[in-house]
Design a protein around this nucleic acid. Structure first.
Lengths: 228, 228
DNA sequence: GTCTATAAAATGATAGAC
DNA sequence: GTCTATCATTTTATAGAC
């Protein structure tokens, strides 16, 4: 009897652990939706709990506070994003090819996880009052690494002498906007949600802008043609 | 006595009318600050009233509701913005010159009124639940006008054949980001607030990206050199 | 115009039974 | 883990005295 109880307890513990993970994941998905719509201050636990199908008090069993949930969400978003954007430091590929991959990856993120992008955007626009410290620790190193790569390319004569930080800002802005401002874009393009074709056209235009300026050599023109 | 009272009343009416305008303007300035920090849902009338130096109840004497104040703020922002961005439809100037002016004007707005830019950005990111209808009525016509101008330039052979809508999106994104993401940029650039030099470098880079792609002719190269 | 008073609802969070 | 009950605050907004 004792052994059986113990066995059942172990089984149950595993199953419940799975269930807990599932519930946490569900809550975080719903939290991303709500935070993307209303920002941190404008979102309510009740709204998130409703969407996740549990009570406000029960939500607070899984996440001890609103801020804890928010930080958890931002951590997840950042980690996914940083993982996918570590692209430029591949010495075996040409700058043009790497930049194309970089732009494509960032646009893919805007297309596949627009809400995650919006949560992050709202936090930054608000002045990063909650996540500023973590941003500094997590994002800054990667950005500075990418900037250093641009500087090396310039010194090696592989790209035009542009300000690396501002180039990165512009690439980020253009690609990110396809998540953050998709409402407005949909309005202009005449359909409610952005379609695959819109993202294809965006990638072509952004890649063209960047490469035509960065690679104003004969090789560059060749690369540019390849991209169109 | 009556006449004097009347006169004083008239005087007072004028002065009070001025005062009212001043108070309303002060409230709106403070409201922009707060909405830019926390978005619509995350902002409270108490916070706005505090900054404006009056009571919450008194604020509601000037603006009948939170939403009324918000709409007023967005109207003001949009009108100022639309007025300054009606640039491309000047037949006496070359496309390159007009685009340079367009980019410069948009960047100037990001520098001089970053909070206004952020309020608008947050509304769009949220899906424009409050201001969507007004956006459609106010912004769409201007955007479509500018897109039509790009199309004319293309058909006249004055610029490369790019997707006009997406080109506009990219220009908007790059310039707007210097208001919306200035927190993050300051972090990377190593100083808390963006400086005049940062905006100069941004203008150079953005103009270079756009013009080098749009004007791949001999005249274009000349224009590009002028801009550096 | 500004004040006090107040309503009515929503907020984040805790305690304790089951 | 989920529930009921509860708390202290804060929220938008209104009513009415001065």
């Amino acid at each position: 009897m004792e052994r059986r109880t113990e066995k059942r307890t172990n089984e149950r513990t595993e199953k419940q652990s799975d269930l807990r993970d599932q519930t946490e994941a569900r809550i975080m998905r719903c939290a991303i939706e709500v935070f993307a719509e209303s920002g941190y201050a404008g979102s309510s636990l009740a709204n998130i709990a409703d969407r996740a199908g549990l009570s406000k008090q029960n939500l607070l069993y899984y996440f001890s506070s609103k801020q804890a949930l928010y930080l958890c969400v931002l951590d997840q978003i950042l980690d996914q994003w940083l993982e996918k954007m570590d692209i430029l430091a591949d010495d075996s590929q040409e700058p043009a090819s790497l930049l194309r991959s970089y732009i494509a990856a960032k646009l893919r993120f805007s297309r596949e996880q627009p809400q995650a992008s919006r949560v992050y955007a709202m936090e930054v626009i608000s002045g990063a009052p909650v996540y500023g410290h973590a941003m500094q620790k997590k994002i800054l190193p990667l950005m500075q690494k990418d900037i250093a790569i641009f500087e090396r390319w310039i010194s090696e004569g592989k790209m035009a002498a542009l300000n690396p930080a501002h180039l990165l800002f512009s690439i980020w802005a253009m690609t990110q906007s396809y998540a953050d401002f998709s409402t407005q874009m949909g309005l202009v393009l005449g359909h409610q949600a952005l379609q695959d074709q819109d993202f294809d056209e965006a990638e072509e235009l952004i890649t063209g802008l960047v490469l035509s300026r960065l690679l104003p050599f004969s090789a560059g023109s060749k690369e540019l043609k390849k991209c169109r």
